[in-house]
Simulated assay, not measured.
Amino acid sequence: MDFDLPDEHRMIRNTVRDVCREEIEPVAQEIEDQHRFPAEVFEQLADLDVMGVPIAEEYGGLGGDTLMYALVAEELGRVSGSIGLSYVAHTSLASKPIELFGTEEQKRRWLRPLAAGEHLGAWALTEPGSGSDASNMETTADRDGDEWVLNGTKQFITNASEAGSILVKAVTDPDAGTDGISTFIVDPREDDGFEVTTVWEKMGLNASPTCEIAFDDVRLPEDRLLGEPGDGWEQTKKTLDGGRISIAALSTGLAQGAYERARAYSKEREQFGKQICEFDAIRNKIVDMHRKTERARLLTYRAATRYDEGRPVTEESALAKLDASEAAREVAEDAVQVLGGYGYTTDFAPQRFYRDAKLMEIGEGTSEIQHLVIGRELGL
């Protein structure tokens, strides 16, 4: 379905779609096989001025809205889950919070290079001992004069090995519960005591680095605190509302990419003297793949539109993320099935979509957590 998008949104989507088809799709499997972060692709995206789509122009961004950003994320996911994941982590998690919660000086110093695509950003919440219970963290930041001293470990941090700045959550008041969590800006290139300790080998998305990072007496000046002490958890919840829309958009792209490849193959492959799409079993599967993808897209665009209208989106973003992530995995699995033995080989894309899609049900809150969030919004 081609939605009635504003002209500017359609232009951005089509421009990114062309770049994806011409530049990214031909290397998508290669960078996965090599487990290589494709810096050159992000340089191209920076040249297109889409590394800061939802960031104001005065801070180096495109000045677009969340719907426009979702369109870009969807197009990237349509050809490469890895590139899409690094892109959305950079934008919604590492850049947008600085615009929402930072001082003018922080926006000039830290947000502008992110929005312009001079380097990637990362966001560090999860720890080795805390996943879904994200607020139960052990990373601490202790005040020492006019500095903060950061210690701890963060786990499964997208882009950390490539980042020019990382937003780190840490406990500043152990007795205050979630009101004792704060956010700090870390410069991994300059701050002594920072280390990337592991870059994980994963089931999929291996062109997007996922890292364990450690902080050993990292000393940060006062101006590295984002917002006020104790603001970190409220910032996190607001950030995740937008982040879930990002994952929903990326998931929709993964589903669309898998569906398109299965549909095309079903019209080319012949068995028993006719195209396999003429058999009920295959035709019905393709129709269901299309239905799930369109449903995910509708929920994602609704959540993005509500976000742009300034309305509460906790329920809508969780619904979109839950549905789209599960749709991505189901559609990708069906795409592998439609292609049969070929679908299981790396010469064809469905196996990559299948492996990439699984993370969408885990990152930015598992499907189980989305049920919890939605239940709370429903008063259950």
Rank of each mutant, 00 (worst) to 15 (best):
F3I: 14
H9S: 13
V16H: 04
R17N: 02
R17W: 02
R21G: 12
P26S: 11
P26V: 12
P26L: 15
E32D: 14
E43C: 06
I55T: 01
I55A: 02
E58K: 09
L67E: 10
L76N: 07
G77I: 05
G81D: 04
G81C: 15
G81R: 12
A89Y: 10
L100W: 05
K107N: 02
A116I: 03
A124G: 12
T126V: 08
G131C: 09
D133R: 12
T139H: 06
G145R: 12
G145K: 06
D146N: 15
G152Y: 10
T158Q: 10
A160E: 06
A176N: 05
D179Q: 14
R189K: 10
E190N: 08
D192S: 09
T197P: 11
W200V: 02
K202W: 01
T210P: 10
I213D: 00
A214K: 11
F215Y: 11
V218M: 06
P221S: 10
D223C: 12
L226F: 02
G232K: 13
W233N: 03
K237V: 14
L240Y: 06
D241R: 00
Q256H: 09
G257P: 09
R261Y: 14
R263V: 10
Y265R: 05
Q275I: 07
A281H: 15
N284W: 12
N284M: 14
I286A: 03
M289V: 06
E294Q: 13
L298K: 09
L299T: 02
L299Y: 08
R302D: 11
A304C: 02
A304Q: 02
R306H: 06
D308H: 01
P312G: 10
T314C: 06
E315D: 08
A320G: 01
A320L: 07
A327T: 07
V331D: 08
D334Y: 00
Q337I: 14
Y342V: 15
D347K: 10
R355N: 13
D356C: 07
L359V: 07
L359T: 00
G365P: 01
E368F: 00
I369E: 09
I369N: 09
L372A: 11
V373C: 07
R376I: 01
R376A: 01
L380R: 15
